[in-house]
Amino acid sequence: MNRINECLRTLQAEGKKALVTYIVNGDPEPSATLATMHALVAQGANILELGVPFSDPMADGPVIQLGHERALAHNTSLRGTLAVVSEFRKTNQQTPVVLMGYVNPMVRMGFEVLADQAAAAGVDGFLTVDLPPEESEPFNEILKARELENIFLLAPTTTDARIGSITALAGGFLYYVSLKGVTGAGHLDIDAVTAKIADIRRHSTLPLCVGFGIKDAQSAKAVASVADGVVVGSLLVSKMGELAGQPAEQIAEQTASLIAPLRAALDSL
């Protein structure tokens, strides 16, 4: 079974909420990524999203844009990201890793080559921001053939009919974008999130994680009370930017320490 499904099934059985973390590969420098991935797991992250840097991260806010720029300054690539996952798997065979990014570097590598190498490296799924369901073939089938999950976004503007067609294709978990806009933006309207999640639940039994706008333990707890997990990204990427120039261990420890209160808040539910 794919690690994502196993992880979420176990958490559900234990009555726990998933903490999903996002960092950008190569940010603020390549040596920091592997150390930070391990440190995040040690602090209670359940699923790691590893951002694949892109020159034009259209759906990201200023914080994560800067993370992509810092990573690209070190020539971080999609191939390099796969190498980091291979390295991570040498000492961690349990924690699911999802590659989150934009489609152009994937097109350039070729979907089949990418999926083969991702499976070999120990990647568990993809979340491709600019590959909505209508455009997701043939990638969807290519992933399925290798038991890799294709994770789709749902938004506040997603109509009921679309929820149905997206959940029919989706694997791993559903990623609900809690607000209109880009990553790291605005304030959560928890009532609106609750209402939309209820709509989504009518269509699918897949676990549902909520991201965009999780800033602290309080917002994490509020959202997790109505979802299966939360995704935190801008909070971590912002910290990693501040820590640029520090030794990798320092970056890893100080960044990962930010999720401890979120973990505690989720575990208090």
Binding site: M58, V103, P132, F152, L153, A155, T158, T159, R162, G181
Partner: peptide, 9 residues
């Protein structure tokens, strides 16, 4: 139409 879900609607 290669855009984020937020823009589809």
């Amino acid at each position: 139409r290669f855009v984020s879900e937020t823009l589809i609607h």
